[in-house]
Design a protein around this nucleic acid. Sequence first.
DNA 1: ACGTGTATAAAACACTCGTTTGAATGACGA
DNA 2: TCGTCATTCAAACGAGTGTTTTATACACGT
Lengths: 236, 236
Amino acid sequence: MTTTRGPTRDDATARRLLEAAGPVFAERGYRDATVREICAAAGANIAAVSYYYGDKFGLYRAVLREAHGEVRRRHMSGVPGDAKPEVQLRAWVEGFLRKLLDPERPQWLPRLMMREMVEPTAALDEVIEESIRPQFDQLAGIIGALTGRAKAGRWVREEAVAVAGQCLIFRHCPVVLDRMLGVKMTTAAQIDELADAVSARVLRGLEPERGVRPARPKAGAKAVARGGQKRGGVRS
Amino acid sequence: MTTTRGPTRDDATARRLLEAAGPVFAERGYRDATVREICAAAGANIAAVSYYYGDKFGLYRAVLREAHGEVRRRHMSGVPGDAKPEVQLRAWVEGFLRKLLDPERPQWLPRLMMREMVEPTAALDEVIEESIRPQFDQLAGIIGALTGRAKAGRWVREEAVAVAGQCLIFRHCPVVLDRMLGVKMTTAAQIDELADAVSARVLRGLEPERGVRPARPKAGAKAVARGGQKRGGVRS
DNA sequence: ACGTGTATAAAACACTCGTTTGAATGACGA
DNA sequence: TCGTCATTCAAACGAGTGTTTTATACACGT
């Protein structure tokens, strides 16, 4: 137990390891990150990882666990719960994009989560339940409020995926987008413009659904909501 | 030279290596893929990689080069160039989604390109120019035709990014989406529905721009096109 | 039949990785 | 002062990596 003792400088190295490991894991990926590099960055000995976290993966999970709190705490706030749904959507998109792209925030955090999504490890479940799902449900709630549809329904969740996809692509393949757009999306002003464009586009995409359906008060709401006109394609 | 000789069975192993390496690189990633596993899958000796391709990265680049032709050839066709822009968009989206998700096609190919986009290697440039940009430009052309804006302009390209983002997320983090939507997007019918949903959503998002701007014949078109109403957000 | 050069094979090489070992350090209580 | 125990450290271990080496098998022109 490292915590039974008093506030000696003992756990200082454990913390230094934790904080040094985040950027390294994010930069190189779990597999390519070496404990030697992490320990060097933390100013600790190689054996410290095994000593404090059992093994490399234990350190990795500790980093993710630490990150969840940060991510969720920062984002869930910032979306005014009592504002109009349109304003909430704009706030959600901007908060999400800032978290993904803002250079004034620690870049390694969303980068680490991206790696976990693209190439899952055994720690993915925790990431989903602790960090992704809450934010996703929040977005689904906003879209549900915008359209009057059930936020747990398939239609709303697919729309939410579309919104997330438009944002995540900027984190998933920034190099490619730089080449396609000719601009890096980094400065706060650019992120703001991007949030404008995305939320406006999403609102337009939701337009035929907004208001046309009166928000049902209570019972049978789900059945009515899902009974709307079928999702229509271009063809036929 | 292996090709100067007649059609002996010599270069057969080189081809077997090439074909075996694709799935392995896609599954494990460049770094985690081992030449031993590739050679075992190809039924070749360990030294064959060095012998035919110089080193591991040479084999990797050969795989990518071989893949470009396939990808581009398959996709660029399939979008009828003389149809209405709406139909072209629907065809582009479906073709893109099929390439990304259709289980009846070799899964390793888009998976490999995804890895290259998310975690670029020295081979990224070639991938962009040979495979990504042509498809992206095609999409931008369709959106330009839909809105009457310059397809090389910033606005059109950002819209194209949004379309690509809605599709790519299904390939970038399928595990997360399975959990969020409760369904795997794999069967041909599901891909078809998805293509309907995406293209319809995109068309709605483009709605205020369609038709309102008469397609300028020739000169000064770009200046006029970019002089339209500013991209408006929710706020203010 | 012989020499030549290509293709395959097994083994080894040099290196890096995560992890473990065993000793040294230093603070703290008895 | 001594013993205890958590902590740190350098060194090494064993497994796995890409690559090279050395030797063998075989087809071909002469």
